[in-house]
Structures are given as structure tokens and as C-alpha cells.
Design a protein around this nucleic acid. Sequence first.
DNA 1: AGTATGACTCATT
DNA 2: AAATGAGCCATAC
Length: 124
Amino acid sequence: MKKKNDAGKLPIGDASRHYTFFENVWDVVRQIPAGRVTTYGAIAEYLGARSSARMVGWAMNQAHYVQPPVPAQRVVNRNGILSGKAHFSTPTLMQELLQQEGLQVENDTIVDFKIHLWLPVEEL
DNA sequence: AGTATGACTCATT
DNA sequence: AAATGAGCCATAC
């Protein structure tokens, strides 16, 4: 009974239906250690499609609705910029979360980003 | 059902 | 070095 189009605006609370790709993304993100960060491209690459970085972004968009929670603040773009901060409840939340984990953030960019970079393709 | 868009990235200009 | 085009593919309208 999952009509393909039911839900219309399905609050994704039901996300557990068959979002294989998305679930893989969330699974990887949840394994990022606190105080470390990774990129959309790195996740996409680990999942076998580097060029699908945009899909990782979409997955993160839905990450707010899934369980267990996904530490979305640990995913930034390849420059270490907090490109997704606008999607948090407040414009500064993403930065604050990262700072709580011991990272330095200046001008929406992670300081020494490369040093804290965590690559699933290498670590996982 | 077709078009537009996006929390991206890379190559080319 | 900055701007542009292209690939990617699921959602939204």
C-alpha cells in the first residue's frame, strides 16, 4: 500500500520506505566522528557516484525528518564552507554546533578544514 | 509529463 | 583568478 504518489507532501516521516541512496548517505554521515567534517562529494564518491554530490545535498535536506538524527552540520562543501547552514533552524546553528565540537569557524568557513576532513572512502 | 531547481563539483574559458 | 557550462538525478510544480 504505498501508493506511489500518496503523501503528496509526505512529511518523509515515512522515509523508511525505499530511499536506499538517501539512507546510505545518512548512514555515512552518522559515522562522522564529532569534531570532524566531510564533503558532499566525498560521500557521493564513497557511495560510488562522485558526480552525484547534489543528491547528497538532497538527502541532507530530508535528514531533518529521519531517525536516528543525522549530524548534518558535519557535512560541508569541498571548500569547507557551511553551504547548508541556511537549512538549519537558525542561521548560526550549524556553526555553533561545529564550534561545540571543537572546530573553529570563521566567515562560514571551517578553519583548517583539510586537517579535520574525514573521508569515508579512506576511513570506512 | 515536461521543465526547473538544488545543502555540489569539476573542466574549460 | 573569476566566470561559465556541463554532469548528476530525485523532487517540486
